[in-house]
């Protein structure tokens, strides 16, 4: 069975767990604090062979029972943007949560990520697409969900982003949705 080495507070580890759960991929979870800095790793009894969220999602897409196409063309750019955005958000969140004094956590980079995400989600909605990945939830949506779901940790004012709110609500309703600290289960 596949084994994920992740850290419970790490957004990238959460995205890997969420992907496995939504795609019904059996997975055991090992706590590994190193994932907080380096991201999650995936392996099996013979050792580790995927390092980082990109490789893990790519591996999931190749599994025989997974009916999700790996993004190509424009969609690949969208996935790359989503992974870079998650990395930036993750750094900003670690800094905010680890700060010795309260500070303004929403950096200009984070604001830009939210603006672009809002524009992309709104455009997809007006185009009649349920998800950023198309008609069904896919890897792009899974990669950006931690950003949207953990916005409050950075003090992001969610009244400015109605499309992101709608996206969070839709993901929460999916069968197989899992939580992490900061993303409550009671909604």
């Amino acid at each position: 069975m596949l084994s994920l080495n992740g850290w419970v507070m790490d957004e990238r580890s959460y995205a890997a767990r969420l992907a496995a759960s939504l795609l019904a991929i059996p997975l055991t979870i090992q706590t590994d604090r190193r994932a907080e800095i380096f991201g999650p790793t995936l392996g099996d009894d013979e050792g580790v062979y995927c390092v980082g969220l990109y490789e893990i999602l790519r591996h999931f897409s190749r599994l025989p029972d997974v009916e999700r196409a790996w993004p190509e063309g424009e969609a690949r750019h969208a996935l790359e943007w989503a992974l870079e955005a998650l990395e930036s958000f993750s750094q900003a969140r670690r800094q905010a949560l680890g700060a010795t004094l309260p500070e303004k956590a929403e950096t200009d980079d984070v604001t830009l990520i939210f603006r672009v995400l809002e524009d992309r989600l709104s455009h997809a909605y007006l185009n009649g697409q349920e998800w950023l990945s198309g008609v069904s939830v896919g890897f792009i949506d899974i990669a950006v969900f931690p950003i949207a779901g953990l916005a409050r940790d950075l003090g992001i004012a969610m009244d400015l982003y109605p499309a992101i709110r709608r996206f969070v609500r839709k993901v929460r309703q999916l069968p197989g949705f899992v939580t992490m600290p900061g993303i409550a289960a009671c909604h």
């Binding site: 004012a157 969610m158 009244d159 109605p162 709110r165 709608r166 609500r169």
Partner: peptide, 16 residues
């Protein structure tokens, strides 16, 4: 303060 479509049943929407 909002578009009707952004306040569906089940949504809890902050506004300032």
């Amino acid at each position: 303060v909002a578009l009707s479509m952004d306040v569906a049943f089940g949504d809890v929407v902050p506004v300032r």
